[in-house]
């Protein structure tokens, strides 16, 4: 196995917080930075990564056929049309869940590691076997969460499991940040989440309607809409993964107009 391959688990515990969207956009961003990247859909039950990347019609084989040695790895890999550095290994049939073992996952990841600089594993929600299989095959992890109590609680559970299994580093991405709500203190702040989960913050992603538009089209934001607020956030995360020192955006500065200054004042910590 090429030892310098970075195998990164993208997980959250709770579903619907943005794992798959993050995986797709990081894949595109890293590929654009010239890194050969494989995205592996480990959510065999409810696969969607193919759809977000717009590759759903080009799947011939999946991880399942690779494991059963019915095809070679490069036959199953789907290369992205515009970003040739990016390939998807599609999830197999949901029935795979019945027989898939941690060893199988490790075998796939090892095969991918021979060819790619980055392997991003899109993890299923939950903390059951699907998650565990994906975790055992990973070296490091990104935990995605939203500034909401249920998402943070589930993230905490996942972080506990990652810690006890020696996955590191584990970094945090705070997704769907709404600067206005944060300014009004009607949403957990960046520091609240960071302090509660006690993880280094790899990045935050602003809530952005364009994300939905991009999923409708099967073109991740970072592909064609690089000016969208969320796209910039994803690109920054990819650059930080590469070790670049890019300051986090300050959500308070994202709101403008009348009252913005006042709201900032109201956030002043007294004690």
């Amino acid at each position: 196995m090429a030892s310098d391959t970075r195998v990164i688990l993208i997980c959250s515990g709770k579903g619907g917080v943005g794992k798959t969207t993050l995986t797709a956009n990081l894949g595109i961003s890293l590929a654009r930075q010239g890194k050969t990247t494989a995205v592996l859909d480990a959510d065999f039950g409810l696969r969607n990564l193919d759809l977000l990347l717009g590759l759903e019609n080009r799947i011939v084989y999946t991880a399942q056929e690779v494991l059963e040695e019915e095809c070679r790895l490069d036959q199953a890999l789907v290369k992205h049309k515009q970003e040739s550095n990016l390939s998807l290994l599609p999830a197999g049939n949901p029935r795979m869940l019945d027989w898939l073992k941690p060893d199988d996952m490790q075998r796939i990841v090892e095969m991918l590691s021979d060819q790619f600089k980055y392997v991003l594993i899109d993890c299923p929600a939950g903390v059951e076997d699907g998650f565990k299989n994906a975790m055992y095959a990973s070296k490091e992890a990104i935990v995605v969460t939203n500034p909401e109590v249920s998402a943070v609680r589930d993230a905490d559970r996942v972080i506990g499991l990652l810690n006890t299994n020696g996955i590191k580093p584990v970094q945090l991405v705070l997704n769907r940040v709404r600067p206005k709500m944060m300014a009004n203190q009607e949403m957990l702040s960046i520091n609240d989440v960071k302090d509660i989960l006690a993880l280094p913050l790899l990045g935050l992603v602003l809530e952005d309607e364009q994300v939905i538009v991009s999923t409708n089209r099967g073109e991740p934001l970072t592909l064609n809409s690089t000016n969208a607020p969320a796209a910039k956030c994803y690109l920054n995360i990819a650059r930080r993964l590469e070790g670049e020192d890019i300051p986090l955006i300050d959500p308070a500065k994202e709101i403008s107009g009348f009252g913005a200054k006042f709201k900032r004042l109201m956030q002043t910590k007294i004690f």
Partner: peptide, 17 residues
Amino acid sequence: ASASTARERLQLVLAHD
């Protein structure tokens, strides 16, 4: 404001979790 309520509730429930 609900953020402080969220924070307090989370801290409690996580301590137990």
